[in-house]
Design a protein around this nucleic acid. Structure first.
Length: 679
DNA sequence: CCTAGCCCTG
DNA sequence: CAGGGCTAGG
């Protein structure tokens, strides 16, 4: 088993139903904090495994190391917000289309001739650091500054010294002088070592920076040179953001370090415990920067164990904060770099990313305004236009699920698609768009072993998944994954009682939701919701959108049969209401066409059938398609064509061309939920 | 021959 | 919604 699934296992708490999982999305739980995706590190589910030193984090060693390297590069605080923007855009630019791991590795390898260089440097630095700390501790111990054990030893020392003072004052004074001298020497040594360590770190960072910059430049050249409007090179930008200073030596003052330091200071001031930390800045205080360095870096177990209890807690706190921040930033950066490396785009993906991007841009005026000019590249011009049009953060600029609709055969009958299918379900708070992206990103990072989930690059190209936040593109629920991995569970899933036929109620979620094989009530529900988008799904589509189903002939034909039945019901209703309209005459039709409103009986019936629990916002497109079908039936009936035994076939032909892309959230196992409507 | 899709029935 | 018959198309 690869680590990803393990991580999921450790990370996820067992949940009763998929609905729980979906409804307990991080989006929802944090929806009150509008800016959290950018500034608040905590709630990323993906971060949590990192925060458990005993579990997943160990397995993340390699990753942590990378993260450490990234984090030490100059970063300004605002950069995070910018990253969020850029991340969104980049993601829309197709970030999700490639496995991130390969990029990271490629870049990593390209940083130096051999990857070992890095790790060896790091090891050296680490050793120096540990030495440093040990010496410092020793020094501190003698000074009685921190650590209870050290305090006691210190006091005993002092007692001894005082006892000696009674015997001979001069002798004592000399000894004290000696001590002072010794301490000074030691401090000097420490300083020197610190300088050396810093130097190495800088060198390391310089290497990284150079390598990345070069790599980026090369890539720029390859794809036709850097942007002409003076846009910063992304690679350089990545590591010099906000510093305006190419010199990596400024790397020692970025947020990572100051943050680590901040924590320590805050803690000491909170405790008011001057024994733990010196109040006035000393040379040692400077070393906290060094401490920051290794807060930013990985903390090896030995170091962890060496710290005493209270420090542990502080470190744990600081580490958590730091890790969360760093991970978020690193992911953002990697994604951005990664997206940047993708410049071959199909028209379709261009369209998709434009919609997603504009949506992202429209997601919050604050965020949109925070988007630095640097990030606005020429290719985003149209996005900017879009952004201008759809400035309101609550209003998505366009329903991305519709862009690929072929022109309907009777375009005149279809009113312009100006409605917002998800408008009612748009969140009152700015949608935390980076989260789904993060999730997907991390899935890309770690999903290789979860190949059963078709969340790979090609499957995300035309996806309006950002749009679908209300249906919670959170991590795939664990149960299906487990079920896929766990044969006994899957076997149980095959039990007759858990199959669709044997179950009545499914709306509250069912224990059999994700048992890996066969189709569950949840699958049925999902299929019905999918029908809102696609009336004629191919078996490939079905496989794509039911990743937790083990497909065989039987299951496939059952699913196809379901859709066949859905169509049947659909057409029956259309015909029925068309006939009724033909009988009764058109209702006060200003435009002399049959309209299908959401208040109509027909709509109610359709909604009742495909969306029984009414927890899903029926997309406008479905209403439009239904309306078109209704008109076609109506026209055929009025024209007397219904005498032809095959008269429906032409209508079917029309309708089957009106399938629209299914939202990405349907790719996740389980049932997509319009959670917003549930609130 | 297989499959998708429609139709009919229960 | 499932089962079965039927047909068209690959």
């Amino acid at each position: 088993m690869d680590s990803p699934s393990d991580l999921f296992q450790q990370q996820q708490q067992p949940s009763h139903t998929a609905f729980d999982l979906y409804s307990r999305s991080p989006l929802e739980s944090t929806s009150t904090g509008p800016t959290y995706p950018a500034s608040s590190p905590a709630p990323y589910p993906i971060v949590s495994p990192l925060l458990h030193p005993n579990s997943a984090s160990q397995r993340w060693g390699g990753y942590r190391q990378r993260q450490c390297l990234f984090s030490e590069l100059p970063v300004r605080e605002e950069a995070r917000e910018e990253d969020v923007e850029v991340l969104g855009r980049r993601a829309a630019d197709g970030a999700s289309q490639f496995p991130l791991t390969s990029l990271v590795e490629r870049r990593r390898a390209s940083v130096s001739g051999s990857p070992c260089d890095w790790s060896q440097d790091i090891v050296r630095v680490k050793r120096l650091r540990v030495d440093n700390i040990l010496r410092r501790d020793g020094d501190l111990g003698r000074d009685g500054i921190r650590g209870r054990r050290r305090i006691t030893t210190h006091s005993t020392q002092e007692e001894k010294a005082e006892g000696g003072a009674g015997e001979g004052g001069e002798e004592e004074e000399g000894r004290r002088k000696e001590n002072r001298e010794g301490r000074r020497r030691q401090r000097r040594e420490l300083k020197l070592q610190l300088e050396e360590t810093r130097g190495r770190l800088m060198e390391l960072q310089r290497k990284v920076w150079r390598a990345y910059g070069e790599q980026q430049l090369e890539e720029e050249k390859e794809r036709g040179g850097p942007d002409e409007d003076g846009t910063m090179d992304e690679g350089a930008e990545m590591f010099s953001e906000g510093e305006g200073d190419d010199c990596p030596s400024s790397a020692l003052s970025p947020s990572v370090f100051s943050l680590g330091r901040k924590h320590e200071k805050r803690d000491s001031s909170q405790n008011g415990n001057s024994e733990d930390f010196p109040e006035e800045p000393t040379d040692l205080d400077m070393e906290l920067d060094g401490g920051g360095v290794w807060l930013g870096c990985s903390l090896v177990e030995g170091e962890w164990e060496n710290t005493c209890g209270s420090d542990k807690e502080k470190f744990a706190q600081a580490l958590k904060q730091e890790l969360a921040n760093v991970v978020a930033r690193v992911i953002d950066r990697v994604v951005r770099l990664y997206a940047e490396s993708d410049h071959s785009t199909t028209p379709a993906s261009v369209l998709a990313r434009e919609t997603s991007a504009s949506r992202v841009l429209a997601h919050g005026t604050e965020q949109a305004e925070a988007l630095p000019l640097v990030a606005r590249k020429p290719q985003d011009k149209r996005n900017s236009l879009n952004q201008g049009k759809h400035r309101h953060p609550l209003i998505p600029p366009q329903n991305p699920s519709l862009p690929f609709l072929p022109q309907p055969p009777v375009p005149a009958l279809l009113p312009p698609r100006n409605k917002e299918p998800f408008l009612p379900s748009c969140p009152p708070n700015p949608p935390p768009f980076p989260l789904p992206l993060l999730h997907y990103t991390m899935q890309h990072l770690f999903t290789r072993s979860l190949s059963s989930l078709p969340l790979h690059k090609d499957s995300l190209s035309s996806e309006p998944f950002m749009e679908f936040r209300s249906h919670n593109p959170s991590f795939p629920p664990l149960p299906p994954l487990l079920a896929q991995l766990n044969h006994s569970l899957a076997d149980r899933g095959r039990d007759e009682g858990l199959r669709v036929g044997g179950i009545g109620g499914m709306d509250g979620g069912d224990v059999s939701l994700y048992l890996g094989e066969g189709l569950s009530p949840c699958h049925l529900k999902k299929a019905k919701l999918m029908f809102f988008y696609t009336r004629y799904p191919s078996s490939n589509t079905l496989k794509t959108y039911f990743p937790d189903v083990k497909f065989n002939r039987c299951v496939t034909s059952q699913l196809i049969k379901w859709f066949s039945n859905f169509r049947e019901f659909f057409y029956i209703q259309m015909e029925r209401f068309a006939r009724q309209a033909a009988r009764e005459g058109l209702p006060t039709s200003r435009d002399r066409v049959l309209r299908l409103s959401r208040n109509s009986e027909l709509f109610r019936i359709l909604n009742m059938h495909y969306n029984k629990s009414n927890d899903y916002q029926v997309p406008d497109r479905f209403v439009e398609v239904s309306e078109l079908a209704l008109r076609e039936f109506f026209a055929a009936i009025q024209g007397g064509r219904d005498t032809d035994p095959c008269w429906k076939k032409s209508i079917y032909k029309i309708i089957c061309k009106l399938d629209s892309p299914v939202p990405d959230s349907f790719r996740l196992p389980g049932c997509p939920m319009d959670t917003h409507r549930m609130v």
